[in-house]
């Protein structure tokens, strides 16, 4: 049985304006039902890799499969039902209410010239409830705080009900309270068998919620495998070009400078 969500075979990517490869001959497997942290310094190629996994960019070389099927064989709608994204920062200039915003997540299930139906609206309310924002359902999303807005984006992906969720730095703009809330929601998603892929430049987050880690440096793969084995002092030091130490504390990995 295929246990991979994503399988990447010798994937390279080059931006037209840049001579250097943004991704260099990457072969990685993202395991189904597990949480994988995509770790690397700024400019390592994490965002490019995300775009390729979303089929938003096409690799210059190599192939990507999702659940054993070539990514390009999925229709846009099918892809939307399988893969969801929580972007790092996304603000609309238009004052959609929170519930309207979350309802956008139902798009892959809504026919082309139709509007979302009763069931979609119920799912959207339920998703808002699950991120603890039901009381803000009818507030304009333009008036939400940064943390609330991040939770709103999470609610939208919950409404989308994908099998794989890609999260781009999901906790970078959050205070500790909201970070804890996001991590709790992610762990409940994990229990339901959703594959999570989280980009972060913060190794502590990777150690905290990741089962597996993919380390990228200058577009090349530095390591891919379990978090516990992967996050060693030497490897993290090499990844960030700065001395880093890991400490085991009550079964948790803590990273210090």
């Amino acid at each position: 049985m295929n246990t991979d969500a994503y399988t990447l075979h010798h994937v390279s990517f080059r931006y037209p304006t840049n001579a250097l490869l943004a991704l260099d001959n990457l072969s990685v497997r993202i395991t189904k039902g597990r949480t994988t942290a995509l770790l690397g310094p700024n400019g390592a190629g994490k965002s490019t890799l995300m775009d390729i996994l979303l089929a938003y960019k096409q690799p210059s070389q190599g192939s990507v499969t999702l659940f054993g099927t070539p990514l390009n064989d999925f229709s846009k709608k099918e892809l939307g039902k399988n893969v969801g994204l929580v972007p790092q920062d996304e603000r609309s200039r238009f004052s959609f209410s929170s519930i309207e915003y979350v309802l956008f997540g139902r798009s892959p299930y809504v026919e082309y010239m139709k509007n979302p139906g009763k069931e979609d609206i119920e799912i959207a309310y339920d998703s808002l409830e699950r991120v603890g924002m039901a009381q803000l359902a009818h507030r304009p999303s333009t008036t939400l705080s940064g943390g609330e807005h991040q939770l709103l984006l999470l609610a939208r992906v919950l409404a989308q009900q994908p099998k794989v969720i890609l999260l781009d730095e999901p906790t970078s703009s959050l205070d500790p309270g909201n970070t804890a809330r996001v991590l709790q929601i992610l762990s409940s998603l994990k229990k339901r068998g959703i594959t999570l892929l989280i980009t972060t430049h913060d190794p502590s987050i990777a150690a905290d919620i990741g089962d597996e880690v993919v380390m990228l440096k200058e577009g090349s793969l530095l390591y891919s495998g379990s978090v516990k084995e992967g996050c060693t002092d030497e490897r993290l030091t090499a990844l960030y070009d700065t001395p880093l130490q890991t400490i085991q504390h009550e079964g948790k990995l803590i990273i210090t400078r």
Binding site: L54, Y56, K76, K77, L79, L85, G105
Partner: peptide, 16 residues
């Protein structure tokens, strides 16, 4: 509505 969102978001929501 969906087309007012960033391109990448629209793409992940199943739009061409």
């Amino acid at each position: 509505n969906l087309l007012s969102l960033p391109d990448r978001t629209g793409h992940t929501l199943g739009l061409s």
